[in-house]
Write a protein that binds this DNA or RNA. Structure first.
Lengths: 348, 348
DNA sequence: AACTTTTTGACAACCGATTGCCATTTCTAG
DNA sequence: CTAGAAATGGCAATCGGTTGTCAAAAAGTT
């Protein structure tokens, strides 16, 4: 049957350059629009032969379902928002990479949102995403427990590095490895150790310091707390100066960004690493392995954290698979020893 | 007036936990839904007092317009897709950062898409985005000129580092600075110079090599072409070996990723940089300043490229402002000299 | 005061799907 | 051969807005 150039009411093919709609497909295959919808989504709901016809028509017209219309009528957007505090930070890039990969594999779109380290922007973004996304992944949330719990009742939510009862979360277990770092330094003979802290509002920072402090007490050494420092390389200068001034021979740093900045500053000041001072970073970001000296750091599976978060979120969004969605996932970390740590300087 | 607990037809307030709609706002302020729509979008179209009432009602109900519905009826999604070839590459992160910042400032959402270095995935993604986004930014497109031109007729498009007549583009003028790099090396006494190329399908790679080759001829030196190498640090090992084997005393490398990988490999092999071999990178990515030795490289305003691309795209999407949208924007780059280049080794 | 011009707001038709409900048709079984 | 179940496809309402059209109201003119 060749298509007659019908001058009838509404042309069923995309005469204009406009993309084909479900109605075009319906017209071409001689069924109702609803049937097309069912054929394409509910496999068993439509006759085998009919479906074949419809699929052929869809292919011919290069039909691509309109995401907006789909979202409006179904309530599902097939999009997930990933909120990061600061897109400038390489740490988040690894997370984004992980979420992107996993979301794409599941056919979801990633909405990247920068909350600019602001609690307010974060809250607004979540509110906004309520309608725009099927779920949200919060990396290093600044929100209060109450606010988070409330948000979690409104939509699927997964946090990374933020633990709140009742909210699924992915935790990078850095405290454990930070304690390893402490042991590492102690075994190298260090006794004056400092912790160079990150933002006061950072949950990871608090957890890490508490674990470190407790571990230090256990081992009978004292750990000095310095900071807070902004999680940027340039803050490393201040951190380095503070460390030198404190008299400690080793520093455990909130993250690699600051640690790398410290390395540069120490070098500029003529302080040798690790001969004069040892430095331990955290995260093992891009660059930690090739800075000078290569950074001893706590390696965390950051990208994997992003992937796991997506998996948990999706199982929350589509609870079909019988398996109960995991509520929590703790990812192990480990200490990677490179060149920035060494034996404590012998007091001359 | 206190709100009576009316049992009338449809409750106008969000009795359930559902977000308020335009109808709720309309009911609460006693006007039609269309009036609410106009009050909120077309400022002068609605009476001052009425608008105030509506805005108050909207605020009270915490009304947030539904993005999907808006998109469906208006045809505009307020979203822009940014296609990157490989989200793993730090280079793209700088672009993403730039686009994110600028898009957010304009109230647009960024849809991040990884095309996995595949022409097909890229083509599909564009097709998909036709309905989902108001415009697309293509970073380092792999598509043919015809395909690009065709796509550009269907929706607003801006390319980065890809020049096709008729399509607005942002070009990072690396060739010019690469030639500076050549002069730099020549002035240091190098005469055996190699270009370590990137992916054969990369447009930047081709442009850069052509410029370099032409410049070399002008200056009467010979530049050897090696590669292609994948734009990854691990490819640096092969690149380094190839460079050493070639006998050249200096290498101009496709990008910093490879260059940094080379630095590591050369160090492992005991080849000193810059004493034995000089290396020039490209892009000045995160890490180029603190690797060992710090990398001499072509600094490109990558983040700015992202921002400019967004600006150009938006002026294409909203041609209101009278000014003609710029068709092309060439961003200057410069050579940043650090520690990886030095005088040519005197043949012993 | 009568008439024209401008504002302002409501009605209703989309946008492109999904989905509950119902009418056929087909298959199975009694 | 027919009643009843299962499979199949269509109608129409709905999602939450936008926007063209038009009537009513307000303002301005003479």
């Amino acid at each position: 049957m060749s298509a007659p150039p019908s001058t009838s009411s509404s042309g069923f093919n995309a005469a204009a350059g406009k993309p084909a709609t479900i109605h075009d497909v319906a017209a071409l295959s001689g069924v109702a629009a609803s049937t097309v919808s069912r054929a394409l989504s509910t496999p068993g709901r439509v006759n085998f032969r009919t479906r074949a016809r419809i699929e052929a028509a869809a292919a011919e017209l290069k039909y691509i379902p309109n995401a907006q219309a789909k979202a409006l009528s179904s309530g599902r957007t097939k999009a997930v928002a990933v909120l990061v505090a600061d897109i400038t930070n390489p740490f988040y890039f690894d997370i984004i990479r992980g979420t992107q990969l996993q979301l794409k594999a599941a056919g979801y779109t990633q909405l990247l949102v920068d909350t600019e380290e602001s609690e307010e922007v974060e809250a607004n973004s979540i509110e906004q995403m309520l309608q725009t996304a099927d779920g949200v992944i919060l990396t290093a949330s600044r929100l209060s427990e109450e606010a988070l719990t409330l948000s979690a009742t409104k939509m699927p939510l997964v946090t990374i590095n933020r633990q709140v009862t009742g909210i699924p979360s992915v935790i990078l277990d850095t405290p454990t490895a930070t304690n390893q770092a402490l042991d590492h330094l102690i075994s190298l003979g260090h006794s004056q150790i400092a912790y160079l802290g990150g933002p006061a509002s950072s949950n990871s920072n608090i957890r890490r310091w508490e674990a470190l402090n407790a571990a230090a007490k256990e081992r009978g050494v004292e750990v000095l707390k310095l900071g807070p420092f902004a999680p940027r390389t340039y803050a490393g200068a201040a951190a380095a100066d503070a460390l030198v001034h404190s008299g400690a021979t080793a520093g455990i740093v909130f993250n690699d960004l600051i640690a790398i900045g410290m390395l540069q500053r120490l070098q500029a000041r003529g302080v040798r690493v690790p001969q004069d001072i040892s430095i331990v970073g955290c995260d093992d970001i891009f660059g930690a392995d090739f800075c000078s000296p290569p950074l001893t750091t706590v390696t965390a599976p950051v990208e994997q954290a992003g992937r796991v978060a997506v998996t948990m979120l999706l199982s929350q969004i589509n609870p079909t698979l019988g398996t109960l969605p995991r509520q929590q996932s703790v990812l192990p970390t480990h200490l990677t020893i490179r060149g920035s740590t060494g034996p404590a300087a012998v007091p001359s």
